[in-house]
Simulated scan of single mutants.
Amino acid sequence: MTIFSYVYLAVFVIAAAVLVYVRTQLVFTARPNRFFQWFYWAAAVMIGIFTVLTSRTPADYISGFFITGMLGLFGFWRNGVTADSLITRIGAVRGLNSLTALHLTVLPTGLTEVAPMVGSVTIAKLRLTQSPAVLKAFLDKRMDPARVIIDE
C-alpha cells in the first residue's frame, strides 16, 4: 500500500464522521434533491463495479473504493437547520446570525420553503415538512425575530 492509500482511508473516515455528526445535529431536515441523491448512488455503484473488475493491487482497490465511498456519502448528505446554523449543501454552513433574512413560504405541495438571504441575495432554497409557524417559533429563539419572515 502506498502513502496515498492511507490518506484516502483517513479522509474517508473523517468524512464519514462529519456526515454522522451533521446528521445528529440537524433539528429540521430538508427534503433531498432525489435526482442528485440517485445520481451519487448510481455513480457509486458503477465505480464500485468497475473497481472490482479492473483493480489489480490493493492501492487500486483502495482508491476505487474511496471514490465509491465518497459518492455514497454525498448521496446520504442532508441539508437543514441545526440549533445555530443552516446547512445548505456540502461544505456550506451558514450561521443563523450571519443571515439578513429567512423567508418561509408554504408551497402548493404542503412543504415549507426556506429561502435564506445574505444581503439581497437568496443563497439557497430548502424544502422542509414543518409548518412556517413551527419553524418561526424555533428560529425566533435563535436569531432576531424581525429577520424571520413568513411570506403569504
Results as ranks from 00 to 15, higher is better:
Met1Phe: 07
Met1Thr: 13
Thr2Gly: 14
Ile3Gln: 07
Phe4Cys: 08
Val7Pro: 11
Tyr8Thr: 07
Ala10Thr: 07
Phe12Leu: 13
Phe12Pro: 05
Phe12Lys: 04
Ala16Arg: 06
Val18Gln: 09
Val18Asp: 12
Leu19Asp: 09
Tyr21Asp: 07
Tyr21Leu: 11
Arg23Pro: 09
Leu26Gln: 07
Val27Phe: 00
Thr29Pro: 01
Thr29Glu: 09
Thr29Val: 14
Thr29Gly: 04
Ala30Asn: 06
Arg31Asp: 09
Pro32Ser: 14
Pro32Cys: 02
Asn33His: 12
Asn33Val: 04
Phe35Pro: 00
Gln37Val: 06
Gln37Cys: 01
Gln37Tyr: 01
Gln37Ile: 01
Trp38Glu: 04
Tyr40Met: 11
Tyr40Gly: 01
Tyr40Phe: 15
Ala42Lys: 09
Ala43Cys: 15
Ala44Gln: 00
Val45Asn: 10
Gly48Asn: 10
Gly48Trp: 06
Gly48Phe: 01
Val52Leu: 15
Leu53Val: 07
Leu53Asn: 06
Leu53Trp: 09
Thr54Pro: 05
Arg56His: 12
Pro58Phe: 11
Ala59Trp: 04
Tyr61Val: 00
Ile62Asp: 05
Ser63Thr: 14
Gly64Leu: 08
Phe65Asp: 01
Ile67Leu: 15
Thr68Glu: 03
Thr68Ile: 08
Thr68Cys: 15
Thr68Tyr: 03
Gly69Gln: 03
Leu71Trp: 00
Phe76Gly: 08
Arg78Thr: 05
Asn79Met: 12
Asn79Glu: 10
Asn79Leu: 04
Gly80Ser: 10
Thr82Lys: 06
Asp84Ser: 12
Asp84Arg: 13
Leu86Lys: 01
Arg89Ala: 14
Arg89Lys: 10
Arg89Asp: 13
Ile90Val: 13
Gly91Pro: 06
Ala92Glu: 12
Gly95Met: 02
Leu99His: 06
Thr100Ala: 06
Ala101Val: 00
His103Thr: 05
Leu104Tyr: 11
Thr105His: 04
Val106His: 04
Val106Arg: 12
Leu107Gly: 05
Pro108Glu: 13
Val114Glu: 02
Val114His: 01
Gly119Pro: 11
Gly119Cys: 08
Ser120Pro: 03
Val121Pro: 02
Thr122Arg: 15
Leu126Pro: 00
Gln130Thr: 14
Pro132Trp: 14
Ala133Cys: 10
Ala137Tyr: 09
Lys141Thr: 10
Pro145Lys: 11
Val148Arg: 03
Val148His: 05
